[in-house]
Structure formats: structure tokens, C-alpha cells
């Protein structure tokens, strides 16, 4: 029983990282209908920014987090400006290929700048396990879960209550109409990229602390999993991304612990396939009928 609870908490922690990364995917998809394949690489860059600030400047954890999120936001903004903006009216698949190109570019940039060898992430969160009964919970796990939930609540309030948040929702519903209502669509899209990238970097920092490693290809698998999470919950929907992230994290952890670590990826993707066949728009998505 203790072991099971332990696994549940681990799943919650992994799931919260996926959920935060999935939020970035889902926000960008919701607003410009682009599967931003470079998002996993922004997460990786975030982890490298954290590594650099933690090792060379020796900043404390919260500063590391804030600084890497800020730099990643700027990175996301510039990628949007340079690569995606010119393609806004191009066929969607061209934008997809561009996103893949950017993802390859960032990966190889990291490879050239930081070399392929994995870097060891310093333990900027003290690693004292906290005991609750027989349960051992690492501080990293607790910080991850708490911070993720805080960021999710903040984002939710931002989208619902503030003016830029409302603009985001409006643009994702109807771009033309929101232009007519006086919303600056370009600025709203840029803001979405900035927030999404900052969240991606947040995921990257916590992921690298949890697994103590930073390397150029680290963004691929978590990026893909977070993307699966976003689709599973219903892509374009913020609560869907959160739910999907936790579900994927749980499934992955439980199947690694009780079934087989080799098959866990197949199980994650298998569940994605089943959900898509049964309910193509994801768990929380609404079915839309295509009109002639």
C-alpha cells in the first residue's frame, strides 16, 4: 500500500510537469492551430538556462526559475516573430514543418554550444525527504507539485479575469471577429507564445532537477508526452491539458512500476489511440459537426 501511494505521488509529480508543458502546447494550438513541435526544445533550453544560471552565477532556486522562464519567454517570442509570423497565411503543414525545423535548430544549437555530454544539474532544491508515516516524499516532488498547481491557478485566473486573457480566448474563438472588436491579434499571439514558452521552461527546470541531468535531446520525449497529454485532454482546452498531463504522468509511472518499463511508452500511446478513436476531440473536448 505504501509503495502504491509512493507511486501515486511520483505520478502526480511527473504528471504536473507534463501538465505544465502541455499547457504551452495547448495555448499555442488553441490560438493559431499550430502543433508547436519546438515546444519540447524550449523546455530543453529552459533547463540549460537554469543550469547556466545555477552553476556559473550560483543563483538560488527561485531566481533560477524566474530568470530561465523570462529568457525562454523572450526566446519563444523571437521564434514566433522570425519563423511563424511569415507563415500565418501559408498552408498549415508548412508551418508544422517550420516548427519541426526550429526544433531541430534548437537541438543542434544546444549540441554545438553545450556539447552532447549530459550536464549534471546541481541540487538547487535541498534533497531532504519528508516523512509522512511510512511515506517518503522528496522535497523536489513537493515543490514540483505545489508550484505547478500555483502556476495553473494563476494561468486560469489570468485567462478568465484579465483583459489580455480575455483577448486570448476571443482570438482563439474567432480571429476575424476579434480584429473587428479592436483586439490586437498579433500582440495577443505573441503574448501566448511568451506565456507558453515560460511554462515550457518551468517544466524543463523542474524536470532537470528531478532527473539531475541536462542534455540536448532531453526535450523530445517529455515534449512528445506532454503533447499526447494535451491531445488526450482535448487540445486547445486549458483544463484538458492539465487533466491530460496528470493522466499521462499517472499511467506512465504506474505502468513502469507494475507492468514493464519497456512497454510503458507503448501503453501511453495505446491509450492515446483508444481515446482518439472513441472520442477524437479528447476527454474534455466537444464534438463539432462539420458543415457543408
Amino acid at each position: 500500500m505504501t509503495l502504491f501511494l509512493q507511486q501515486l505521488i511520483n505520478g502526480l509529480s511527473v504528471g504536473s510537469i507534463y501538465a505544465v508543458i502541455a499547457l504551452g502546447y495547448t495555448m499555442v494550438y488553441g490560438i493559431i492551430k499550430l502543433i508547436n513541435f519546438a515546444h519540447g526544445e524550449i523546455m530543453m533550453m529552459g533547463a540549460y538556462f537554469a543550469f547556466v544560471t545555477a552553476v556559473t552565477i550560483g543563483m538560488p532556486f527561485y531566481m533560477v526559475l524566474i530568470v530561465s522562464m523570462l529568457i525562454a519567454a523572450i526566446l519563444g517570442l523571437s521564434i514566433e516573430y522570425v519563423a511563424y509570423k511569415p507563415l500565418r497565411n501559408a498552408p498549415r503543414i508548412s508551418a508544422l514543418i517550420t516548427a519541426i525545423g526550429i526544433s531541430l535548430f534548437l537541438q543542434n544549437l544546444a549540441l554545438v554550444v553545450f556539447k552532447p555530454e549530459p550536464k549534471v544539474m546541481p541540487a538547487i532544491i535541498p534533497k531532504q525527504p519528508i516523512l509522512i508515516g511510512n511515506l517518503q516524499i522528496g522535497t523536489v516532488t513537493i515543490v514540483t507539485i505545489l508550484l505547478s498547481v500555483i502556476f495553473m491557478i494563476l494561468l486560469d485566473q489570468f485567462i478568465k479575469k484579465t483583459k489580455p486573457g480575455k483577448a486570448m480566448r476571443a482570438v482563439s474563438q474567432d480571429k476575424e471577429a476579434s480584429i473587428l472588436m479592436g483586439i490586437n491579434v498579433n500582440r495577443t499571439i505573441s503574448l501566448t507564445f511568451a506565456i507558453g514558452s515560460a511554462l515550457g521552461a518551468f517544466g524543463g527546470v523542474l524536470y532537470s532537477i528531478a532527473y539531475t541531468q541536462v542534455y540536448p535531446t532531453m526535450g523530445i520525449m517529455p515534449g512528445l508526452k506532454a503533447f499526447v497529454a494535451a491531445v488526450l485532454g482535448g487540445i486547445g482546452l486549458l483544463p484538458g491539458a492539465m487533466l491530460g498531463g496528470f493522466v499521462i504522468g499517472m499511467i506512465e509511472t504506474i505502468s513502469k512500476a507494475y507492468i514493464s518499463s519497456q512497454w510503458s511508452d507503448a501503453i501511453v500511446f495505446g491509450i492515446l489511440i483508444i481515446v482518439l478513436i472513441v472520442k477524437p476531440t479528447g476527454i474534455l473536448g466537444k464534438n463539432e459537426r462539420e458543415k457543408v
Binding site: 507563415l87 508548412s94 508551418a95 525545423g101 543542434n108
Partner: peptide, 22 residues
């Protein structure tokens, strides 16, 4: 050497931006 894939991906993005229809 190491800059190979960097150049490759850069060319890919540039080609896509200037000729999105292929």
C-alpha cells in the same frame, strides 16, 4: 562537423518561409 545539422535546419526553415507551398 557539429554545425551540419544546425545549417540543415536553418536552411529548412528559410526554405519553408520563402516557399511554403514547396
Amino acid at each position: 562537423a557539429n554545425y551540419r545539422m544546425l545549417i540543415y535546419s536553418f536552411i529548412l526553415v528559410v526554405m519553408m518561409i520563402f516557399r511554403p507551398q514547396g
